[in-house]
Write a protein that binds this DNA or RNA. Structure first.
Length: 469
RNA sequence: GGCGCGGUAGCCAAGUGGUAAGGCCGAGCUCUGCAAAAGCUCUAUCGGCGGUUCGAUUCCGCCCCGCGCCUCCA
């Protein structure tokens, strides 16, 4: 069964297929701006894209997928941060890039094959801008900036179906600058010493020094690393307009050919029913959630499995509890399977096939979850030979690979140690239990519970865990 | 004003023109001094009103409610 994915331009589901004769699937995913820690909304998109990458590898083979995800390391926000911190741009972007990589690794996202930075591709961007100027699709403004002339591209608006007169009037006033038309967008932004500090590069022929606009970077990096036409271009819905609309305009006018065969956009994450923002106090980074005691794998599960990627997902801390319980069941199930299989190695059985099919059907993760637990519920250890169990284990592991869920790693954060007062109570209860003083033991358990601790007995020892918040 | 999305059990969430997957939580039972873990079982008629149809949660129309986006935010 081929992978079918919703396509934003046609608004239909289309099969994913490599178009080039080399059979390599070319996949570009718009990456983060590295000026602050990425928040979990960002990571929903990256986790979803990671599953696309994994499905593509399963479908076409690991060496037949070329996945590019950029880092935006120069734009208004990164530069704004240099001004705020009075530190060089590279220092700031390096710091946040490092954290982004760490978060991605914790969330078990595969590294893209290329991770270009905007500042690493200035020449490529400049040269595209020059071509656009030569072709009459771009013009130099009075201040030395270069703008794309939207009216020169007939198909503009095809992706977002937005017409310039439909844009909110208030936004049109604010951004007058030196443009010929309000909908024209910057390809190159002239250097403003008071705002940009020392961030500048030599501009395209006929323009001043400055820096590239945001949109051109993706066009240039995609062209440089994947060629003029790619198989799939993805990002969050917010990028649909203007970012992707503008990329299409730039790339197609410059290259004279179709830019992307397939556009895919994942929906936004909401937190507590509304847009996440620092002022609302519902803004979470991965670090924030780890600090609350959740594992990154639980976060991945919640971001991926608890809602369809093309529907807004309302994230709550409660959903992390759900995810945690679900993930624990997966872990338990795998242990049972592995125990039964022993050392036997085998090819995947047909079990869990429906899970993969659900993913191939427009990344329907909730459906996949249904199939997954449905199959787990049907599994019975009785009558299973080690061979069968090994086959089922191989099939299960394939599903875990596709979803990027690592249940074998001990990703659980260490439980905090109990304070001395609690351990003392626990010891007392243990003693009471050994003396078969059930009433005393129960009373002590109640005390522990009241203090927020749970005492888990085993044959000849016990451990203490804090009760769930 | 424009573009778009959603309203399915306590919560989350798939899905189908013929009487609703799954997860979480909860309850009962088994097991176990208790608790935990594990296992079994149970829990909805799909926002409202019309229409089409033998039959609609699923198609059409209207209405109500909630939400997102609209130039540099994944």
């Amino acid at each position: 069964m081929p992978i079918r994915l919703h396509e934003s331009l046609s608004r239909t589901q289309r099969e994913l297929q490599p178009a080039q004769p080399d059979g390599v699937f070319r996949f570009y995913n718009c990456g983060p701006t590295v000026y602050a820690p990425a928040h979990i909304g960002n990571f929903r998109t990256f986790v979803v894209n990671d599953v696309i990458r994994r499905l593509l590898e399963l479908e076409f083979g690991p060496d037949k997928v070329k996945h590019v995800r950029n880092l935006t390391d120069v734009d208004d926000r990164t530069i704004g941060q240099t001004q705020k911190e009075k530190r060089p741009l590279a220092e700031i972007t390096k710091k946040w890039t490092g954290l982004f990589h760490a978060d991605c690794a914790a969330l078990n996202c595969l590294r893209p094959h290329h991770e270009p930075t905007a500042t690493g591709y200035i020449k490529e961007q400049v040269s595209m801008i020059e071509v656009l100027m030569e072709k009459g699709n771009a013009y130099r403004a009075a201040d030395g900036s270069v703008y794309f002339k939207v009216s020169s591209f007939e198909d503009y608006g095809a992706l977002s179906r937005i017409k310039e007169r439909e844009l909110k009037v208030t936004n049109m006033v604010a951004d007058s600058d030196h443009k010929d038309a309000v909908s024209d967008f910057a390809l190159w932004k002239a250097w403003k010493p008071e705002e940009d500090g020392d961030v500048k590069w030599p501009g395209p022929r006929g323009a001043g020094a400055g820096r590239p606009g945001w949109h051109i970077e993706c066009s240039a990096m995609s062209k440089a690393l994947l060629g003029d036409t790619i198989d799939l271009h993805t990002g969050g819905v917010d990028l649909l307009f203007p970012h992707h609309e503008n990329e299409i305009a730039q790339s197609q006018c410059c290259n004279g050919t179709q830019f992307a065969h397939h556009w895919y956009h994942s929906e936004h994450l909401l937190v507590d029913g509304t847009t996440m923002s620092k002022s609302k106090g519902n803004y979470y980074t991965l670090g924030d959630l780890l600090a609350k005691g959740y594992s990154a794998m639980v976060v991945r599960y919640a971001l991926l499995m608890m809602g369809h990627p093309r529907k807004q997902l309302n994230f709550t801390l409660d959903s992390l509890h759900t995810a945690e319980s679900s993930l624990t069941r997966l872990r338990t199930f795998r242990s049972a399977l592995a125990a039964k299989a022993g050392a036997v190695q085998a090819q995947p059985s047909g079990r869990f096939k429906a899970v993969l099919d659900a993913l191939r059907d427009d990344l329907n993760t909730p459906w996949a979850q249904g199939e997954l637990f449905g199959d787990i519920n049907l599994w019975k250890p009785e009558g299973q030979t080690a061979q069968h169990a090994a086959e089922d284990l191989a099939a299960f592991d394939q599903i875990l690979f596709a979803l990027g869920l690592d249940v074998t790693a001990t990703t659980e954060p260490p439980k905090p140690a109990a304070p001395a007062a609690i351990t003392a109570l626990a010891d007392q209860r243990w003693a009471a239990k050994q003396a078969k003083d059930w009433a005393g033991a129960d009373a002590l358990r109640k005390e522990l519970t009241a203090a927020g601790w749970s005492m888990l007995d085993s044959k000849d020892s016990y451990r203490l865990e804090p009760l769930k918040k």
